[in-house]
Design a protein around this nucleic acid. Sequence first.
DNA 1: CGAATGATATGCT
DNA 2: GCATATCATTCGC
Length: 203
Amino acid sequence: MNVDLLSRPAEEVAPRLLGSVLTCETSEGTVRIAVTETEAYAGTADPASHAYRGRTPRNAVMFGPAGHLYVYRSHGLHWCANVVTGQDGIASAVLIRAGRVVEGEDLARERRGERVESPRLARGPGNFCQALGITGEHNGANLLTGGPVMLSEGEPVPAAHIRVGPRVGVSKAHDWQHRFYLAGDPTVSAYRLSPRAKPSAGA
DNA sequence: CGAATGATATGCT
DNA sequence: GCATATCATTCGC
């Protein structure tokens, strides 16, 4: 994956990450997942971003150079993974919301549960990380230098298949058109409006 | 130092 | 559809 591509604002990078492949190697084995759904978080200008209130120990990675992984824990039990984008010093990241397992499906299913159907293995941010094997240990990992977690180009996605919509699950600025996904793909999480969603201004 | 909150997923009503 | 699990981070006092 080219770092120049990632060095643009999150909302530009997010649609271009569709189809790219995340690889995670652990002692258990290797899982590769093709990204089918992303969400852009525009740093300090975005009320829904963790970086909205400025730099903190947790979100520091988002302020760093593009091509690193920002992992955080949600609701005490799920891990969520972001690809850091934009320029060094400016908070910007793309949340990976869903994907399709292309290698290591057995291992992914072992982690997620035997009864989980293939399209659901990596559907939703928490499930995606669980299937891939991402944990807090991977926070800050460089995705471009051949570490245990890697981001690589996948099969090109036709622009006509890309859809844009409002973000999922956020309590603020949910109506920003910052969620990108592949039309009709069964691995894309169903759209749900946040229970706390309120109208807001913005792009 | 205590309290509230959250970019979720699942299971039961 | 709604409640609930469960904890690190953040913010208020």
